[in-house]
Amino acid sequence: MTSDRSALFRPLRIRSLELPNRIVMSPMTRSHSPGGIPGADVAGYYARRAAGGTGLIVTEGVAIDHPSAVDNPRVPHMYGAAALAGWRAVVDAVHAAGGKIVPQLWHVGPLWGAMGSVDPAIRPMRPSGEWGPAGKTSYSDDYVRRSLQPTEPMTDDDIAEVIAAYARAAQAAADIGFDGIAIHGGHGYLLDSFLWQGTNTRDDAWGGDLLRRTRFPVEVVTAIRAAIGEDLPIFYRFSQHKQQDYTARIAETPDELQAVLGALVAAGVDVLDASIRRFDAPAFEGSDLSLAGWAKRLTGAVTMAVGSVGLGKSLQDSRIDGTAAPVVDNIADVQYRIGAAEFDLIAIGRLHLADPALATTLRTGAPLSTFDRTVHERNLV
């Protein structure tokens, strides 16, 4: 094993979480939990990845206890006795297989209705009532047209209720035995929509300049840290791109990115999960440094990269043009960047669907599996 390859398999400790390697299963929506309740098949799905040697599993997005958190009845919840019992079985199965697991807490915010029909009586949570400027997207023209209709902005009571719901979900997850908490704060969903000028045009304490737009996600992190205490780590997924527009950005300069990420780390975030379509893409003009690399340089926090590992095309591009992503062995670049301390963890999505023993495959240098959307996005492995 070369020194670069060994970088992938160095242990890492983050608060009470001890990881045997730097390989993370990226969160991927599955819609396999009818009524929001994860069953034995969900436990087996995650346990197989743990048994395959993956250092950390981040679950699919999990709905917090709020009426418009998630619009798909088959997405799991982090509330209710049956759902929590199901998650406890998942955690126990992953731990029995030698793995670690954190849930990704989720509120879709402006993107309410993207995954299916919704109750028209339920108002989506939008900072200013806007879905966002439509740009390059994989959503249907019909969905975009309907979503562009403005709604009432979130009130102070709405904001307080959502913050409390995040804290309740985090506390429930900690009580079940999860090894930390992950928060979905990217892709145009609720937390991200407060950061983006395209969806946050407020002029009160929750909007305006960039620091005020950061206040809502900071308050969510603060509430979660208070609920779970000091032992468990908090992961925070952020992104420049939005599903409303893949070309959108929250930060045009490193200084603007530092303002956002520094506030999140000060509030209690331990790991910044830099979501981008390609893990190696330069984040700012004039530098080859990736988004995860900039996050680490600007904050000193542990950072995680993600995007098209082992594949020659991003998920978004595959969905837009309808063609498959070819296998591309870019693992050496991942190993080099971790070894050079550009970032600390690598999250891998689609290849974990194709190969439950992906970590073992990477350790041995065996050929990468071919990802087939028609099979693997249905999560049959």
Results as ranks from 00 to 15, higher is better:
136 K>P: 00
136 K>V: 13
137 T>R: 01
142 D>F: 10
142 D>Q: 14
143 Y>C: 00
145 R>I: 00
149 Q>I: 12
151 T>V: 15
151 T>P: 04
153 P>R: 05
153 P>A: 13
155 T>W: 10
158 D>L: 09
159 I>P: 02
163 I>H: 12
163 I>R: 09
163 I>Y: 10
164 A>R: 02
166 Y>E: 07
167 A>G: 14
167 A>T: 10
174 A>Y: 06
175 D>R: 15
184 H>V: 10
184 H>A: 04
188 G>T: 10
188 G>D: 07
190 L>S: 06
190 L>Y: 08
191 L>M: 14
192 D>K: 05
193 S>M: 06
193 S>Y: 01
194 F>A: 03
199 T>M: 02
199 T>V: 09
201 T>I: 12
204 D>M: 12
210 L>E: 05
211 L>W: 04
212 R>Y: 06
216 F>A: 02
217 P>Y: 06
217 P>N: 08
218 V>D: 08
219 E>M: 15
221 V>C: 07
222 T>L: 08
227 A>R: 10
228 I>L: 13
231 D>M: 06
235 F>W: 13
236 Y>G: 01
238 F>V: 01
238 F>K: 02
238 F>H: 13
239 S>G: 06
239 S>K: 04
240 Q>K: 08
244 Q>F: 00
245 D>V: 03
246 Y>S: 04
247 T>W: 02
248 A>S: 15
248 A>F: 02
249 R>M: 13
249 R>K: 15
250 I>V: 12
252 E>N: 13
255 D>G: 11
257 L>V: 11
257 L>C: 13
259 A>M: 14
260 V>W: 11
262 G>L: 06
263 A>W: 00
265 V>I: 12
265 V>G: 05
265 V>H: 05
265 V>F: 06
